[in-house]
Write a protein that binds this DNA or RNA. Structure first.
Lengths: 236, 236
DNA sequence: TCAAAAGTGTTTGAGATACACCCATGT
DNA sequence: ACATGGGTGTATCTCAAACACTTTTGA
């Protein structure tokens, strides 16, 4: 049995992958292989198949187009302007992931033509993909101010200066080193390692890692990682 | 031109309407008029048409099934389990609105068969509608803790005790009257009116109304309407 | 006059902010 | 020895939390 006389539509997923390489935020893009907008830059997108959920489709599409596997994708929202795709109407559901660029470098090998772009040097994107990215970025800023999610962007072991760079980069602000350190350590989310990272200073900075049990249990806790004042700047 | 060899699917919107009558939270439901699950209770849902966005579809469907107009609907998320509808695969995008029940009472007249149900006396719902409601409720709790959105549920003029009831009801907690008042007034969102509401006490409680300009400009500001401790209770 | 709800202030403690110097080490 | 980035402590202030009595008035 079927519902009769109803419109059936293409449904696609588009994957927005934010990455961090230790210094900068980047966005993963591919060059579209087929018309329309062939050769133009695009998010990783594809149509939903019969037997898969949107989550599964996002995972599959991302893997097929970039080689990425085991990435935590989260649904952002649906985009549905009837003419957003000039060929034919497509409802798109956007997904977002945060990854440590270096960790996944091998997976994105040269057989795929995915490329990382610095956030302030993005090329023109097809369709409404630019809007999707903007929405995703605002969402990320919002969430990261309340939950410790930026850790996803760092390697397992990271230093406090790295973490601070991450926060400062996302909001384009400067933070006080002492207050930042105190705030982070007070969450008890971090375990200090014995080794130091000497790659960016002579003295070296101690590595920290996430205390996974505390992380998972306390994830929903609200944490003022970013002050209210700093956040208000985002609302111009 | 069309995309060839791709699956086309039914896309539906489902509207979750939370209401408040001054005392309790309620959910608006309809009795489904067609199979499957005829006669069972359901959210207001319908298929997306060719020339409309999801937002427009949600607005239209809600109006057709309940008579409600000019209600602010916000996209929640997409639900996509392949077998969520036993007849045929349907991707559903859920929308949420908050309304003052009394204000819209006339619109929902008897020609429609929509009914309000108390949140803890919900009937069995079709498909995955129960899950949608749960997701929406969690989302509402989350947002209301940070932004002054619960005002949508109250009439234009309301009293502080009413407002407190609203917050206490959503989180199922008791709040301190003095702290609550101070917190709310410190936002400068409220204008004190000259009249009192004498319906629920002999002394009468002063009416307040929203200062719309402040409300719109400061909406994104983060406000600790609900304490961190109270919120943590939600994470069991 | 009394019952029932509205309204109001103060104290305390925790956490956020501002701020400046010493440390370790490779060159 | 010095330049570079890493690490740390204290004073102040703001804001949330705890807490109890007075006011109004209809019945």
């Amino acid at each position: 049995m079927k519902y009769s006389n109803q419109l059936r539509l293409l449904v696609a997923v588009d994957c927005i992958i934010f990455g961090f390489d230790g210094e900068q935020y980047k966005l993963l893009l591919i060059q579209r292989g087929f018309a329309p907008e062939k050769e133009k830059w695009s998010l990783m997108g594809g149509f939903v198949r019969a037997e898969e959920t949107l989550d599964m489709a996002a995972e599959r599409v991302l893997n097929q187009l970039t080689g990425l596997k085991d990435v935590y994708l989260e649904q952002l929202q649906a985009f549905s302007e009837p003419d957003r795709d000039p060929i034919e109407r497509v409802i798109a559901v956007a997904y977002v992931a945060l990854i440590d660029i270096k960790k996944y470098q091998q997976q994105i090998d040269d057989s795929f033509h995915a490329q990382w772009f610095t956030m302030n040097e993005l090329p023109q994107l097809i369709f409404d993909h630019r809007e999707m990215v903007t929405t995703a970025l605002n969402n990320l800023r919002y969430k990261a101010a309340l939950h410790p999610i930026l850790f996803e962007l760092l390697p397992e072991k990271f230093t406090l200066p790295q973490l601070q760079t991450l926060y400062e980069g996302l909001y384009d602000i400067k933070m006080d080193k002492r207050n930042f350190t105190r705030k982070l350590l007070s969450t008890n989310l971090l375990k200090k390692e014995k080794e130091k990272d000497k790659s960016s200073s002579k003295k070296g900075a101690f590595y920290y890692s996430l205390d996974e049990t505390v992380y998972k249990n306390n994830f929903e806790n609200f944490l003022n990682f970013v002050s209210k004042n700093d956040l208000n700047v985002l609302n111009e």
